[in-house]
Simulated assay, not measured.
Amino acid sequence: MRHKILVTGGAGYIGSHTALALLQAGYDVIVIDNLSNSSKVSLERVGEIAGRNPLFIEGDLRDAALVNQIFNDHPIESVLHFAALKSVEESVREPLRYFENNLVSTMTLCQAMANANVFNLVFSSSAVVYGAPSIVPIAEHHPTGQTTNPYGRSKFMIEQMLADLAEADPRWKIAILRYFNPVGAHPNGLIGEDPNGMPNNLVPYICRVAVGTLAELKIFGNDYPTADGTGVRDYIHVLDLADGHLSALDAIRKSGGTHIWNLGTGQGNSVLEVLREFEDISGRPIPYKIAPRRPGDIATCFADVSKAERELGWKAKYTLNEMLRDAWKWQSTNPLGYK
């Protein structure tokens, strides 16, 4: 019997690409998603690419009865937990909503897992737990918790909660994956990033300007202490990220406790560098204007990825050019996303 993997938030951007990678690796996949910032069309297309479909359950992880029922009904072996609200800017405006959604959903999930004797968990964390780094590249042992926004604090609090779980009960095998900045799409253009409303992340914002659904890009701050004054981030292809989840899942099956890995490329690119590269790829000029810095943003953030390479045998393969090429293929063939 094939292992069944529960993917929370699996209709979303990273979740759908990882669900595809799991199906292609031979797993049976169950997805729970409340579709608050995603579309089930993504999963239909995942099934089209993989040649078989994940089982989709529409619902909210905070619904304890539903989550317990899923574990009662299916022989789930491991969980990949993506479901969360994830906008830095929105979290600054609505902190209670972020703490309630992200923390309660994780607590409900972990309780249901324990009830069902399922203890393998890969958690989607974020580089935001490092806050404003004093040195880069950022390694896993660097200080965490001095986060600059409620979204980051919610991820940090969940990391602490999971570490306490593993400390209290040695049956838990937990991978905490701190992503840097996921971009790109499946190279065939069938699945990609499709945020509701105004994009919060740079590349989907640029893509929508290029395709004509937004008039111009806002660059939030050009007075950072960086080479061109714009923020520097470590961009990683979503397919590399999906592979990192499969590597982490394999690793935790072999050893208990809590393991933390950065997933990034180990290189930083500024907003203007990404913009110019995208213009070259798409052949379209991207009009932009400079806007004030956003609350909670930082100047420079890129990863030390040597631990993941050493312990997981995982390394990002895709270049920035390939990430942006695939993002543009997705947006240009799906100008309105999944709608």
Rank of each mutant, 00 (worst) to 15 (best):
G152E: 08
R208T: 07
P195W: 08
L80H: 10
V79L: 04
P287I: 10
S125L: 06
H17S: 02
K329P: 00
L249Y: 09
G266I: 11
H3E: 15
S134P: 08
K155A: 03
Y338D: 00
K315G: 07
R284E: 11
V136R: 07
D73C: 12
A166V: 06
Y235A: 05
I236R: 04
T147Y: 04
G296P: 04
A185P: 01
V118E: 02
E94K: 15
S332V: 01
Y179G: 10
M198S: 15
S39M: 00
E193N: 14
W330I: 02
I206G: 05
A132S: 15
A84I: 03
L6G: 03
A303W: 09
A116E: 05
R52P: 00
M107K: 13
A127L: 09
D223L: 09
R2G: 10
M323P: 01
I32N: 01
A175I: 06
L61K: 04
N200Y: 14
V183I: 13
G47L: 02
N149Q: 08
S78M: 11
H3R: 14
E279R: 04
R97M: 11
Q24L: 13
L43C: 05
S78W: 08
G152P: 02
A116C: 03
A303C: 07
A127M: 14
R253G: 13
L35A: 06
P285V: 13
A248S: 13
I5S: 07
